[in-house]
Design a protein around this nucleic acid. Structure first.
Length: 603
RNA sequence: GCCCCCGUAGCUCAGAGGAUAGAGCAGUGGUUUCCUAAACCAUUGGCCGCAGGUUCGACUCCUGCCGGGGGUACCA
């Protein structure tokens, strides 16, 4: 946690003031918590409304324990605090006020600006970066679509969340490792092989291959209902695939290639990079050794002809390692994957960005790893089981129903992106037809809208997919942030000079400006909060606050009702305000970057 | 049945022990001789699912119930 300098100063003043107003108590018990600035620091919170000040200490609890009325204590305390401030030059930028039982503290805008703006201007995109994760790796398993199936919006959440977390942890100094755990193995590929042989043609694999394969998959399921023999054929085909038969392997490889080509196009469009495309099939030859290890550790037993790890005493269903017919399951592959990743990366954390439906599955997998490490007497510092996290999230629904590949009520991600881009293009042509990068900008805005909509709520919430919401560019949306950013860029273009760092900070004295500076100061903390909770939406909602606060500055009216413009004849005032403009631009751009969204300079 | 998640304005969501529960969308009324109106200002709209309990203080924590969703041994 980055320590908040001003908050610490406020805690110091408060501690000193308590010593003054409670001299007897201090003489008796000098180490009491209310004289301890570290303890007070933890108790200080951010007021509900910005106009209540920058920080606040609720006095109810303290007052009760020293047997006094909080409102009375507050009056005396505030007076002592302000006296202390008056006597100490280094605290001169602080002021305290009593509001009922809340001891509110305010930081002078000038001091806040002087602390924050030079830092941002100097560090530029590195503002908010840290070295907390230096030398440590975070392995992030995300996106992981099934091959031979189209990429639906249902798959967007893991993709957007995972990619954002990748960038967030990188910013905090960790080395992020992105793994795309492709769904490229299992009985379903026996089905695909059978379907392709019966109804498919190689020409189908030339254009829109994934969609055509998907049609075959749907057709297969319809036919299978009428003709159960197909299921046997599919199982046989998968068996051959597993044994490495040439014809089956060749087809499977083709499916995989065309799918990867399509996926990579989508990822390229979204600006997403993976360090590894190690799908389920990657672990095929690594599983037998793991199964042996589990057996040797004494964790397994046979139950109903299957090899299982009993987890009953942990309130979990048994983890099936191999089926009655000897075939492995996804749990086996995931266990193998954890062990492989631990050996390969020695990660600080391994994150699995996978939907909430697989909660029990990951509990089982993680528990099996824990039991294995215990059984093998792995020294605590070499264990990974405590570093595994399932980053779960709710469903994307459509008309309040979950989307399913089989039933066909699936919305293709490509369609969503395309519609969003088209709409963005229309808007640009309407509003800024002379823009010479219309295509690129439309792409940035359309994708920004889609990604932001996907990350605008807490992970655990289900999202009901709504075209009107995704295609809305007004209000709390990605395009709103991008628009604000473009405005800032425009101001810098018009200003046309380098923004000086040594400005007169006291000129940034409007309450609207204070709010902006206060928010800029908080950006680093927002990033660590987002990382701690694995919640990119925290960054999004922060950016909305910041953009909103800036837009108020931008459209602030003076006493005569005229817009108080940022660029004016007053050179000194203008340069101070331009420093603010540049700082806001940097933070919005970087914040959007952390969400995987681009920030155009013009739109 | 058991376990988990969600329930806040008409809609989508913030707030997760503290101040009068906040935003956006939708609705209504305004602001531009233009530093990008994809913006800004004002305004309508709330038994925070229900009932108890803990606390100086509960939308927030605990218990029970209701509604929605998910999981619950060989799919992922």
């Amino acid at each position: 946690m980055p320590e908040n300098k001003f908050k610490q100063q406020i805690a110091n003043c408060t501690a000193e003031a308590f010593k003054v107003i409670l001299p007897e108590l201090f003489r008796e018990k000098a180490d009491l918590y209310l004289f301890d600035s570290v303890w007070l620091y933890e108790k200080i919170e951010v007021p509900k409304k910005p106009d209540m000040g920058n920080f606040a200490l609720p006095l109810f609890e303290i007052a009760k324990q020293i047997g006094k009325n909080p409102v009375e204590v507050n009056k005396i305390l505030t007076r002592a605090e302000n006296k202390f401030v008056a006597e100490h030059e280094e605290y001169a930028h602080l002021s305290f006020s009593a509001a009922g039982g809340f001891n509110n503290a305010r930081i002078k805008t000038e001091a806040l600006a002087e602390e924050t703006l030079p830092q941002i201007l100097e560090l530029d995109e590195d503002y908010g970066s840290s070295e907390e994760g230096k030398g440590e790796k975070i392995v992030i398993d995300f996106s992981s679509p099934n091959i031979a199936k189209p990429f639906g919006v249902g798959h967007l959440r893991t993709t957007a969340l995972g990619h954002s977390l990748y960038r967030i942890f990188d910013k905090l100094g960790y080395k992020s490792v992105g793994i795309n755990h492709l769904g490229d193995w299992g009985t379903q590929f026996g089905k695909m092989i059978v379907a392709f042989r019966k109804w498919g043609r190689h020409d189908d694999l030339k254009n829109d291959a994934v969609l055509k394969l998907y049609d075959l998959y749907v057709k297969y399921h319809k036919e299978e209902e009428k003709d159960p023999v197909l299921a046997d054929e599919a199982r046989a085909a998968f068996k051959k695939l597993e044994m490495g038969e040439h014809d089956e392997a060749h087809l499977w490889n083709l499916f995989k290639e065309v799918s990867l080509d399509a996926f990579k196009e989508t990822y390229k469009m979204l600006g997403i990079h993976f360090d590894y495309y190690t799908g389920e099939s990657f672990y095929n030859d690594k599983m037998p050794a793991v199964v042996e290890r589990l057996k040797k550790a004494g964790l397994t037993r046979i139950s109903q002809d299957a090899l299982i790890v009993d987890l009953d005493r942990f309130g979990l269903p048994p983890c099936i390692i191999s089926k009655a017919d000897g075939a492995t399951l996804y749990a086996t592959r995931d266990i193998t994957g954890v062990l492989y990743r631990w050996e390969t990366f020695r990660f600080r954390k391994a994150l699995y960005v996978v939907g909430t439906a697989q909660r029990d599955h990951f509990k089982q997998v993680f528990k099996v790893i824990e039991l294995l490490e215990e059984a093998e007497n792995v020294p605590p510092e070499k264990r990974c089981s405590q570093n595994l996290e399932h980053i779960e999230f709710g469903w994307i629904k459509f008309n309040d129903k979950t989307m399913s590949t089989r039933k066909g009520n699936i919305i293709l991600l490509d369609d969503v992106i395309e519609k969003a881009i088209t709409l963005a293009r229309e808007k640009i042509i309407e509003k800024n037809p002379d823009l010479d990068t219309i295509e690129q900008t439309a792409r940035q805005i359309g994708i920004g809208a889609v990604l932001f909509a996907d990350m605008s709520a807490r992970r655990m919430k289900d999202i009901n997919f709504d075209w009107d919401v995704v295609l809305n560019f007004e209000g709390e949306t990605g395009p709103y942030l991008q628009y604000t950013h473009a405005r800032l860029a425009s101001l810098l273009r018009i200003y046309g000079k380098d923004v000086p760092v040594d400005i007169n900070y006291s000129l940034l004295n409007r309450s609207e400006e204070h709010r902006v500076i206060d928010l800029l100061y908080k950006f680093p903390e927002v990033i660590t909060d987002a990382a701690r909770d694995y919640e990119p939406y925290l960054i999004g909602s922060y950016l909305l606050d910041l953009a909103g606060a800036f837009n108020k500055v931008y459209q602030r009216k003076d006493e005569t009702g005229r817009i108080d413009k940022i660029i004016s004849d007053d050179a000194e005032l203008t340069s101070a305000r331009m420093a603010l403009v540049k700082a806001v631009k940097i933070v919005i751009q970087e914040g959007l970057y952390l969400m995987g969204i681009e920030a155009p300079d013009e739109m």
